[in-house]
């Protein structure tokens, strides 16, 4: 089904994205994103020992939400704004579900806009990374 502004309904969910990053994925993310804080790859790092595990980069979860939105958008528009807050820690090798729903759609200066509520959810259903995105649709 192709994405069009007209067919979008406020309150509808967009297709979810499942993530389950292990240490290797976090190492790839560190290399790609430049964040080498040992808290994200070294179990012997003092802060990781205190927490009891390394933790997933907040920015990895932000990027996963970006992937959620770009997969849904399928290059039929432009991400105008995307943001999130890191409210809860997630550990490697645990499932994270990235989800989103259409909060509102409107037209402004000849642009077709959509605001999405987006978030990551841990296996207990807790929203560890709540956020939002505004997208401009071409179709």
């Amino acid at each position: 089904m192709s994405l069009t502004w007209d067919s979008l309904e406020e309150g509808s969910e967009i297709p979810e994205l499942n993530k389950n990053p292990g240490v290797t994925q976090l190492v790839k993310y560190a290399a790609g994103g430049g964040d080498f804080n040992p808290l994200h790859h070294d179990y012997g790092f003092p802060q990781a020992k205190e927490i009891g595990s390394i933790i997933i980069h907040g920015r990895f979860k932000y990027a996963a939400l970006g992937e959620l939105v770009s997969n849904w958008l399928g290059h039929k528009g432009f991400v105008r704004k995307i943001g999130c807050q890191y409210r809860g820690m997630d550990m490697p090798d645990q499932p994270i579900v990235c989800r989103g729903k259409v909060l509102r759609k409107w037209e402004e200066s000849d642009e077709k806009l959509v605001e999405l509520e987006i978030w990551t959810e841990n296996s207990e259903g807790k929203k560890t990374t709540p956020g939002s995105a505004i997208v401009v649709l071409n179709t």
Binding site: D35, G58, Y62, C84
Partner: peptide, 27 residues
């Protein structure tokens, strides 16, 4: 550690040992 520029950047001499990311927004 974070790979960003360190030269001439505004920085806070806070002496606090732990760091966590709070949130990010890009427009």
């Amino acid at each position: 550690t974070f790979s960003g520029p360190s030269e001439g950047q505004p920085s806070i001499n806070h002496g606090l040992p732990n760091v966590l990311d709070g949130g990010t927004e890009t427009e």
